[in-house]
Design a protein around this nucleic acid. Structure first.
Lengths: 223, 223
DNA sequence: TTGCAATTCAAACAGTTGTATGAAACTATC
DNA sequence: GATAGTTTCATACAACTGTTTGAATTGCAA
């Protein structure tokens, strides 16, 4: 046991720096300086830099997934096994968007770290990341129960597009603000969530009478 | 003038390696080995590694933007100044998707390089990247002309979501294939383009009678 | 206090990175 | 064919990376 103080100071400093500046250009020396500990402490407590990153990622990954699944479970129980698709999508993208957008002082370091992890591809994380597929499968299952007439292909595409809009908006929030000259307000997080959920819902329910990839026909007309 | 052979060999090798492995872990020595030239050649011909990356990015950026604008211009001229929104969106996301997806042997190194550039954030590129906003503004203008009843905010959000779906699908194509157990066919590029265009069109035209952010009401009902 | 393990620390290590150097090899002009 | 300018090359350099080492310090039990 012992103090544990150094250990958690390193974790906190590392998470903060990675969230802000990305994995690429944060060195061990940056981390220990920020944490106010000795350089050798990282290797002593974690073994290596990669293991530090991995531990950070696993911890946060578990926490984020639990949060999302909590919302999902609650929604499905309330609906007797079937939740409205909008609520499922909200459980999927809401926690991340809320953690990464909004006024600077209320952004979660943890959420921003996770976005970094999903963007930059660093070896120790890549190795673990496959497990997240199981997590997404649970959401795919809930979406299937919510939209039983929908083909699997459409479910997966809808899931993909929902994540796409959420992650891309976070990643490019600065550019979107500049492009729109401030008209798109990324501090109004609930509006952003509502927009993403709305579009994803449309993607998943358009042409709902057919069962086989109806989105294609609609777009083909435009060619 | 002189031979120029070494110069272009370096450019080609660098683009290939960056497209495949990202900027993070491609060293000058990797590049010169792939190009079959001496280590000092990069600094001799380009001055520094950063200037090599910058030249590569500027060249490709101009080419990609020209291709997209060509499609856009053609569509607007054919429609007498107003192009259908689907065609505009297709001009926006089509070239990139076609260059990055599809069977391995027909993927464009250039397009994959550009996606890398838009994903990983490396200093020399970040400095140049702001210019791309002007390019996107041209598309925003065309979309405004196509949907004159739409508010600027909705236009920008639609543009953002269209790019989001295209880029995210490219970035996470492997995961989507695995998640869907191959049901989502990412080799059928035209299907992917059609899906993205279709959803983006819905995002931009839903509730088309109103002028003020109608997407919000739809999602709010679901809360 | 003594003794022992856990922790911290300054320093050095080995490896890799981008860059610079000066001699050698070319190429074209006179 | 000698000369001047360009391009290539092997090599060295300085800076930085993650990691290791072994001595100092700390904390705690006997």
């Amino acid at each position: 046991m012992a103090s544990d103080h150094t250990r958690s100071a390193i974790l906190a400093a590392a998470e903060r720096l990675y969230a802000d500046r990305g994995f690429g250009d944060v060195t061990l020396r940056d981390i220990v300086a920020e944490a106010g500990v000795n350089l050798a402490a990282v290797n002593y407590h974690f073994g290596s830099k990669d293991e530090l990153i991995a531990e950070l990622f696993v911890t946060r990954s578990i926490a984020t997934n639990r949060e999302r699944l909590r919302e999902l479970k609650a929604a499905e129980e309330q609906g007797g096994g079937r939740a409205p698709i909008e609520v499922i999508l909200r459980a999927l993208v809401g926690p991340t968007l809320r953690g990464c957008l909004g006024p600077e002082n209320q952004r979660s370091t943890a959420a921003r770290f996770m976005i970094r992890a999903s963007i930059e591809s660093v070896p120790p994380i890549r190795r673990i990341k496959n497990r997240e597929i199981d997590h997404l499968r649970k959401f795919a299952g809930a979406m299937r129960r919510s939209l039983p007439d929908r083909s699997d292909v459409d479910i997966y595409w809808g899931l993909n597009f929902a994540l796409a809009m959420a992650h891309h908006t976070i990643r490019e929030s600065e550019r979107l603000t500049k492009l729109s000259e401030g008209k798109c307000d990324l501090d109004d997080v609930e509006d952003v969530v509502a927009r993403v959920v709305s579009v994803a819902t449309m993607a998943l329910t358009a042409g709902r009478t057919e069962t086989k990839a109806p989105a294609r026909a609609l777009a083909r007309d435009a060619r």
